[in-house]
Simulated scan of single mutants.
Amino acid sequence: MKIALLAHIRHPVAPPFTGGMEAHSWHLAEGLAARGHDVVLFASGDSDPRFAIDAVVPEHHERVFPGLEHRGDPGLRASVDDGYAAACDRIAAGGFDVLHNNSLSRLPLERRRTAQVPTVTSLHVPPYDALRGFVHDSPGPGHRITVTSRAQGQAWWPEGAPPEVSVLHNGVDPAAWPFRERGDGSAAWSGRLAAIKGAHHAIAAARRAGIALTLYGPVEEPDYWEDRIAPQLGGPIRYGGHLDGRALAAEIGRASVFLFTPCWDEPFGLVAIEAMACGLPVAGFAMGAAREVVGEAGCLAAAGDEAGLAGAIGTALAIPRPIPQARVARLFTRDLWLDRCEALYAQARG
């Protein structure tokens, strides 16, 4: 099939990934191409050049409009809308068999557009007012919508989702996150260093539990980093940097437990299954989809409960490493995810 993949444009779709949405689009493009599909990635122009890129904007908007996401900036809004409107027009005229929409734009959801090109829209965020109405009005014969977890689906449709909506769990390539039989006794945390990801709670819980902790990921909120994270570094608490996939997998795999500390209704938690594939049990907060994703592979505490999280670390450390690995192999592999995507494309095409 000839597939258009429309990405979020806040950051480039390129490793090392800033967040899960960038990783999702990159791995989807790479995986579909490996299966023989003709994939065009509609993303920021500074995304990974290994793909056929059709630029929505020349550069990702966090570089051009730094720090203005979610602040209603009219210049950013106009740039994003103009870029997506033109991209949707090119997709409609481009002879594509299907569009996989990973953006947060309302424009690909318009019925006149989904009537032109069969569309699968993957929702990666909790519901919010600027998008909710457009999502709810968009299901139709040629448009399928996916959520990454049952919990996310219930948040978007508390009274029950329409039949065009289904759960599409994220997946990872086990070969890219190799299993290790034992860890070194330390804890690991990875993700965007932003308040909603809760690294400060991981630090506090690790100190309570008396376990060394290394943090990995990009500094998304400089003030948060300077106020809440940097002053806590030193001794058993360290920052390991923003690493590419192979280096990050090697570092995560050395640890003995993964700390997962969302402070929002996390729609999925890709970082958790990456660590689980390496064999790490998870100690975390029961927010959003955490229970659905972690299952028997970890122990969860109430959101924000640092003492409870410290106790969960000890419980998680007792879980044999093959258990989290097996859960990923059963539910969250890249091949399962890609199989489901191809089935959804067939449904959208009728």
Rank of each mutant, 00 (worst) to 15 (best):
K2Y: 08
K2N: 10
H11S: 10
P12H: 02
A23K: 08
S25R: 05
L28M: 12
L32S: 07
A34E: 14
G36H: 12
V39I: 06
L41D: 03
S44A: 15
P49A: 12
A52W: 06
I53S: 02
I53D: 05
D54H: 15
V57F: 02
H61V: 14
E62I: 02
V64M: 08
H70T: 04
R71F: 08
G75P: 00
G75K: 11
A78I: 00
V80I: 14
A86Y: 04
A93W: 10
L107M: 09
P108D: 03
P108K: 10
R112L: 07
A115I: 06
V120G: 06
L123Q: 01
P127S: 09
Y128D: 12
G133P: 04
V135K: 03
D137L: 14
D137N: 13
G140A: 14
P141S: 14
G142I: 01
H143E: 09
R144L: 06
I145R: 12
V147L: 14
T148L: 15
R150V: 07
A151D: 03
Q154H: 13
W156T: 09
W156Q: 09
W157Q: 07
P158S: 10
G160L: 13
V172T: 12
A175P: 11
P178Q: 05
F179D: 00
E181H: 14
R182Q: 14
G183C: 08
G183W: 02
A187N: 02
W189E: 05
I196L: 13
I196A: 12
K197W: 02
A202L: 05
A202Q: 03
A209Y: 04
L213M: 06
P218A: 13
V219A: 04
D227G: 06
R228S: 14
G240D: 04
L243A: 09
G245R: 15
A249K: 00
A250R: 09
S256H: 13
V257A: 03
F258M: 01
F260H: 00
F260W: 02
W264E: 05
F268W: 12
G269N: 11
A272P: 06
M276C: 00
G279T: 06
A283I: 09
G288F: 06
G295N: 02
A297V: 05
A302K: 09
G304C: 09
E306H: 07
G308Q: 07
G308P: 12
L309G: 09
L309P: 08
A312H: 09
G314C: 05
A316S: 11
I319V: 10
R321M: 06
P324K: 02
Q325V: 04
A329K: 12
T333P: 07
R340N: 09
C341Y: 13
C341N: 08
A343L: 10
L344K: 11
R349C: 08
